[in-house]
């Protein structure tokens, strides 16, 4: 392994890899899921009186469907600090997601600022597809590929948001709400498909069990506690299993 010798690909190759990422985005179920989800979100934004360009900017800057649902549905009525608190609690997941995916694409010579765009593009859809596809390619191609994947999937969201905004008058609010369920459906199936290791499957399954239990305690910070409790339990089982197999890591 000549891991020290992996320079960044020349610009034309990087651009080609970026386009490969775009193609992977269009071939992902999440591209269509995002369109459906953001049709619902765009219609809701129109309904409560936000402008077309506000909706576009919110997708570009926030790029998190649950946070955008909170913004659109509460910004008109709630106090700003309440909205900010709800948004930040809904987005805690980005910390471990970014922390898990960036080391997959980093290699010697990569600067922190090269990772700013991949960090911003990280969302559930991009993360799930990135964790599946990045390990299949040489490490020096992973950053442009991930950027292409993220920009491609974000385009689906932008297109969906625009369609929803324009169609809003003809979409009943209940239909817009039903369209928002594209995202949880896709999370469920893709995670089931992608959990190839015991650790992934166990973390996801335990998360599903622990989340309602944590929510019922009404202690707040539900997502954080769900992640820490279920994730650590799964990790513990994984470590014990490795010890039993006699190959400590």
């Amino acid at each position: 392994m000549m891991s020290t010798d992996r320079a960044a690909p020349p610009p034309h190759v990087a651009f080609q890899v970026f386009l490969d990422g775009n193609i992977a985005a269009v071939r992902s179920v999440f591209f269509y899921v995002l369109i459906g989800n953001y049709v619902g979100l765009g219609a809701l934004a129109h309904e409560v009186g936000f402008s077309f360009w506000w909706m576009v900017m919110s997708t570009l800057l926030v790029w998190a469907a649950p946070a955008q649902v909170i913004l659109v549905s509460t910004l008109n009525t709630a106090a700003l600090f309440e909205v900010a608190l709800a948004v930040t609690l809904s987005s805690v997941r980005f910390l471990p997601m970014v922390a898990a995916i960036l080391p997959v694409m980093r290699r010697p010579g990569v600067r922190q600022r090269d990772l700013l765009l991949p960090a911003h593009l990280t969302a559930v859809s991009v993360w799930v597809e990135g964790m599946r596809l990045l390990p299949l390619m040489p490490v020096e191609r992973r950053i442009p590929f991930y950027n292409g994947l993220g920009v491609g999937l974000m385009s689906g969201a932008l297109v969906g948001g625009a369609i929803g905004f324009v169609l809003a008058a003809r979409l009943p609010p209940l239909l817009s709400a039903a369209l928002l369920f594209f995202t949880p459906m896709a999370i469920l199936m893709s995670s089931a498909r992608n959990s190839r290791t015991l650790l992934d499957g166990l973390a996801f399954g335990l998360g599903l069990v622990v989340a309602p239990i944590v929510a019922a305690q009404k202690i707040g910070l539900d997502l954080m506690w769900t992640g820490l409790i279920a994730g650590s339990m799964a990790y513990g089982v994984h470590r014990l299993r490795e010890r039993w197999r006699g190959r400590p890591s």
Partner: peptide
């Protein structure tokens, strides 16, 4: 470990939605 926490949080997002 962080990856396991992220995966469990993803399940949490699903449950919340």
């Amino acid at each position: 470990w962080v990856r396991a926490v992220a995966t469990a949080m993803l399940a949490g997002v699903l449950a919340q939605l």
